[in-house]
């Protein structure tokens, strides 16, 4: 197991009022992303616990792109990874953001 953590400045606070969202499942080639609104509005953090070791550079790039595209200010993302491919990681992060943006039903 390898743990990674990235902290970024974000352009703006992520919209919505939900405090938490979760998406995905920890399985081979899959991952879960827990998003929590617990940080100051201009910060975001991504903590990763992964079964696939040695992919730090890829994670760093995926996370940096994600932060640039989504500007998830105020959110902390916690990831449990079962060895997902980068495209799946990017998809789950985007899904987590969409979920936390949604208004409570």
């Amino acid at each position: 197991m390898e743990t990674l953590s990235y902290r970024h400045r974000a352009q703006q606070r992520m919209a919505g009022s939900k405090s938490m969202a979760i998406i995905g499942v920890v399985a081979s080639g899959n991952l879960e992303v827990l998003a929590e609104r617990v940080l100051p509005d201009t910060e975001c953090q991504v903590d990763i616990s992964t079964a696939a070791e040695g992919f730090g550079a890829v994670w760093e790039a995926v996370v940096a792109d994600f932060v640039e595209r989504s500007s998830p200010g105020g959110l902390k993302f916690s990831i449990n990874d079962g060895g997902a491919r980068p495209d799946t990681v990017a998809l789950r992060l985007a899904q987590a953001v969409r979920l936390i943006e949604e208004n409570d039903r």
């Binding site: 992919f55 491919r85 980068p86 495209d87």
Partner: peptide, 8 residues
């Protein structure tokens, strides 16, 4: 195709 295949 996908940028990464089986087993990354």
């Amino acid at each position: 195709g996908e940028t990464f295949g089986d087993k990354n």
